[in-house]
Design a protein around this nucleic acid. Structure first.
Length: 951
RNA sequence: GCGGGAGUCGCCCAGCCUGGCCAAAGGCGUAGGGCUUAGGACCCUAUCUCUUAGGAGUUCGUGGGUUCAAAUCCCACCUCCCGCACCA
């Protein structure tokens, strides 16, 4: 029984005692590995562990390759979710308290303090840090910080000021979800049921009604050319209001929404829907009147409570018109209303709304299927429709292009306005109040829409390495569509905007270049730097090299030079690890901001993106209760088995499916290796047998494959090679050595396992140290050099002869399987010298690119040495096939080296065949004078394919 | 719609980047055997089809193409999954 936690503790304290992960500048080449820091609103679970584990393996690998590796960690306190949590704790929200108690196991005395947001962050900060240490992450903790530390705030002020100086921060207005009672923006964390407030932007078309305006809300401004009437709900009591000096008639709900949209509203009176019916309004862009008619589908809570009717293209309108006509007892002028078709598509005829309504068998305007019909027509017409000749200057344009043009045209001519409302209403704030959309003026934005900035970011992306490669297009795409992005918000933890203290720098904007801060943080921790003295001049000098060391207020020349040196040594970032959910935001902002602030030689070198972690094939979530806190898992299974289970379950970008069986599988595997190695002693072996040379060659192969894979961060592949793929070779080796009755190969195994453990060390650092020690080796394996591949120790003869042996063993099994013979004696016939010469000749020709049987035959006959081959064309045919079915690598080896099959087989085949088949083995070369060949099999022999006789 | 990813032998999943030791690893399941009083656990063997000589045939979403050779490269199509914003 292995005490994993004890072993892990033992080696962690050794690493700590030797300060192995504390990294300062030195003469060696550096690597700076970073990971997106955690947001401490919960303990870590297995899913969080993935990114950090990948980065740690990366760091440990580089360390063994001889680099001076810096791997630091910070904690992101900035943001609003923790605020929401604190509020919920304060109001004794049962759901959150249960979660804290039963899933996160937070002690009751700590929960009491959670009414203060900072206490929540502090608690989980320590919890997460402890887990990272227990996982064996090789982090330099002297550089740790939180994003509300005074020094960090100074840094963020400098960052945001620098961006502003470069005119990359602009001011504007922006809609947000808003709680009218709290007078605060709401995001997902602030709503009941964690609903994300989502907006719909309607265009209000302003129809004229005497000296009033009747606005109707639409998502399809282009359909104004097909309007036939308005729809009014006769039961609704509409408000007459004054909006920025204009008289409007809208529903009560609409009036309420307008109050938050940057408009002056006053109420003047009311009018019942029924009083509007039958009256006429004027279309804004034409002097043309249309009637207002009754429709029951019109809801006062959506849009303005009045609807513009386009029966040709809107299923609701078409159906309402049908209903209207049916209900009219006596014919009126309005009875003659006809849909006006304005869009042509391949899909539909003249009246798409009618077609779809009939297709879905809709019979009245309150049928829920009308929603589906609307979505279908909208989608088809938007992406595939063209405006017809009756659309004035927009005729002939594609709907997808014309929509924005028409929107602008309406706006410029004051024919329209904008109404924003919540798509998924009602959204309720945690205080219970129904939320609205509010336009915030004076909002600050990072201008990611800037063309020059995008160009720089794209050029950075082109120059850097993005792993895995396939995700690079996604980055370019994100850079392409990014526009202005709000970079400040009104509440939450974080740094205040230096020029406007009502705002706090938003959390995705204060985490874009903080990797630079790691390089100076250890001087904050040791007291060399005092936050209050860190000025613009200070940061400009340290990070940008502006000014000179002696003129920085507050700090001596020596200090300044030392700090500048630290930054210059470690920057740029060599690799940044993160989950793929951060590609469209953090990772892209990280690139953008670096290109804006730093000179090109400080731009990041690499991004590594990983997928998420599933638990037993399902998404992890609190509600499903399938979250395993990382620290719990470590104490149950050990850190290394968890590290390996996460890595082996998927390649970088795929979702990793974590399950406990795979953890126990891995654990068992590691324990087997540990036991095996505890037995092995370092010993010298005098004469190497062919199988020894073979397995040592295979070991070189392993080192080379694993190194290649890790360099590409294909860690699953690398680990698979180390733990499993190599086993097949090892078991062949053991089978061979055991068949020969050898007892002297422990030394070889010791050598093999020592190398294998070095390869394993970055992945499973604790157990690797333990095994290393049990093998009787000295020192820490994590501090050794990564094994190098030496091509000299690859013995191509040994590889060829083992391949020959394997293929003969397999052939024999096949024959036995088909014939069901019980073998007594197996006779092997190897090819004669003429065939070997001919084989070489064919091999050369095929390597030259000649694969045509006839041409090869002709050439061989022309050469006196091989002209006799004409008697045996079958041999040529089969040999070409043999050669072509092999990979080029093996062909090359066969060109270079030659093995004597008869000698190898007589020496090596007998033992293993005796063991596997319990039969005697005779070996002859075709043409031997003493040959035993009762069935005339020998003539079928080919090089690498001896003939076989089984009796 | 745009952008990205995926479709493999009953199921899960590797192989594709770097074409050929690929009828295609591993796991689950299934069948037979060993062990055991029995069950469980564990171990061994088999698991596309045909075949009494190492062979042949048909397979990797569908249809084409390139090549001596395609699961792998190219083109088109079908189906499924993810992202499209102010949220960490």
């Amino acid at each position: 029984m292995i005490e994993w936690n004890n072993i892990e503790k033992k080696w962690r304290s050794k690493w700590q005692a030797e300060k192995d992960f504390e990294t300062n500048p030195n003469d060696k080449e550096k690597k700076f590995i970073t990971v997106a820091y955690p947001y401490p609103n919960s303990p870590q679970h297995i899913g969080h562990g993935r990114t950090y584990t990948l980065a740690d393996v990366h760091a440990r690998f580089y360390r063994m390759q001889g680099y001076n590796v810096l791997f630091p960690m910070g904690f992101h306190y900035t943001g609003t979710p923790i605020l929401g949590m604190a509020k919920r704790v304060e109001s004794e929200d049962k759901e959150i308290l249960d979660g804290l108690r039963n899933i996160y196991h937070v002690p009751e005395k700590d929960i009491q303090t959670f009414v203060e947001p900072i206490k929540i962050a502090d608690y989980f900060h320590q919890e997460i840090k402890a887990g990272m240490i227990e996982m064996g992450y090789s982090i330099d903790w002297r550089r740790e910080f939180t994003t509300i530390d005074p020094a960090y705030s100074k840094f963020i002020e400098w960052q945001i000021n620098t961006l502003k100086e470069k005119n990359l921060i602009i001011q504007g207005s922006h809609p947000v979800g808003w709680c009218p009672r709290d007078q605060n923006p709401v995001s997902q964390h602030d709503t009941l049921g964690d609903v994300e407030p989502d907006f719909t932007e309607y265009i209000l078309i302003k129809f004229r009604f005497d000296d009033y305006i009747i606005p109707t809300a639409t998502l399809r401004p282009e359909t104004i050319f097909g309007v036939t009437n308005l729809w009014v709900n006769s039961k609704t009591n509409y408000k007459k209001i004054l909006v920025d000096g204009e008289k409007w008639i809208v529903s009560k709900e609409c009036a309420h929404k307008l109050e938050f949209l940057d408009k002056e509203i006053s109420y003047e009176g009311e009018i019942l829907g029924a009083d509007l019916i039958g009256k006429q309004v004027t279309i804004p862009h034409r002097n043309e009147k249309i009637p207002m008619l009754e429709a029951s589908f019109v809801e006062s809570g959506t849009g303005t409570g009045l609807v513009m009717s386009v029966p040709a293209h809107a299923p609701f309108d078409y159906q309402a018109l049908e209903d209207y006509k049916e209900n009219q007892t006596q014919s009126s002028d309005f009875h003659l209303l006809k849909p006006i078709s304005i869009i042509s598509t391949d899909e539909y005829g003249e009246f798409p709304a009618q077609e779809v309504v009939e297709k879905l068998r809709i019979s009245n305007q309150n049928d829920p299927k009308l929603e589906e019909a609307t979505t279908e027509v909208y989608g088809k017409e938007f992406y595939g429709g063209t405006l017809k000749g009756n659309c004035e200057q927009f005729a002939g344009k594609k709907v997808s292009d014309a929509k924005d043009l028409i929107k602008d045209w309406l706006n410029e001519n004051k024919f329209s306005d904008i109404l924003l409302e919540l798509t998924n209403s009602p959204v309720r704030c945690r205080c219970g109040t129904e939320c609205v959309v509010k336009i915030l003026s004076n909002q600050w934005f990072l201008n990611y829409g800037d063309k020059d900035w995008k160009e720089k970011a794209n050029s950075c992306l082109d120059k850097m390495s993005i792993l895995p490669q396939e995700i690079v297009n996604e980055f370019h795409y994100v850079v392409g569509w990014l526009r202005e992005r709000a970079c400040a918000r009104q509440h939450g933890l974080g740094t205040k905007l230096p020029w406007d203290k009502d705002w706090i720098v938003e959390s995705l904007s204060d985490s874009v270049i903080y990797m630079a801060f790691y390089t100076i943080q250890r001087f904050v921790q040791d007291g060399t730097l005092q936050p209050e003295k860190m000025s613009k001049e200070f940061f400009d000098y340290v990070f940008l090299g502006k000014g000179s060391a002696e003129n920085i207020p507050g700090f001596s020349k020596d200090v300044m030079e030392k700090i500048r040196k630290e930054f210059s040594y470690f920057y740029p970032v060599d690799s940044r690890h993160s989950g793929r959910d951060l590609v469209p935001n953090h990772l892209t902002f990280f690139v953008l901001n670096h290109t804006a602030i730093f000179p090109e030689n400080q731009w990041p070198k690499q991004i590594v993106v990983n997928g998420s972690v599933l638990m037993d094939g399902k998404k992890m979530s609190k509600s499903m209760g399938n979250i395993i806190p990382l620290r719990q898992a470590i104490s149950d299974y050990g850190a290394d088995p968890i590290r390996l289970a996460i890595i082996i379950s998927a390649e970088l970008l795929q979702d990793a499916d974590f399950n406990l069986e795979s953890v126990s599988g891995i654990k068992h595997k590691l324990e087997t290796i540990l036991e095996e190695c505890s037995r092995l002693k370092l010993s010298k072996i005098e004469i190497l047998e062919p199988e020894d040379n073979w397995i040592l060659s295979k070991l070189q192969n392993l080192v080379s494959n694993v190194t290649f894979s890790i360099e590409k961060m294909r860690l699953r592949e690398a680990l698979h090679e180390i733990l499993f793929a190599f086993e097949a070779d090892l078991s062949w080796y053991l089978k061979r050595a055991n068949a020969k009755g050898r007892t002297d190969f422990d030394g070889i195994l010791h050598q093999i396992f020592s190398t294998r453990i070095k390869l394993l060390s970055p992945f499973a650092p604790h157990i690797a140290e333990e095994i290393w020690e049990r093998l009787g080796n000295t020192g820490l394996v994590s501090k050794l050099n990564w094994p190098e591949v030496s091509s000299e120790s690859i013995d191509s003869k040994a590889i060829q002869s083992e391949d020959l042996l394997k293929s003969i063993m397999e052939d024999i099994s096949n024959i036995l399987k088909v014939t069901k013979i019980n073998p007594r004696q197996i006779t092997i016939y190897t090819a004669n010298q003429f065939k070997i010469t001919s084989y070489k000749s064919i091999l050369e020709k095929v390597m030259d690119g000649q694969t045509n049987m006839g041409a090869i035959m002709k050439e061989m006959i022309a050469n006196p040495e091989t002209s006799d081959i004409k008697k045996n064309p079958d041999f040529v045919q089969k040999t070409i096939k043999d050669i072509l079915s092999e990979p080029t690598e093996i062909r090359k080896t066969k060109m270079k080296t030659q093995i004597d099959e008869k000698i190898i087989l007589s020496e090596e085949l007998i033992a293993i065949a005796k063991k596997d088949f319990d039969a005697e083995v005779l070996v002859f070369a075709e043409g031997d004078s003493d040959i035993y060949d009762p069935k005339g099999k020998a003539k079928h022999a080919r090089p690498f394919k001896p003939a076989i006789l089984i009796e």
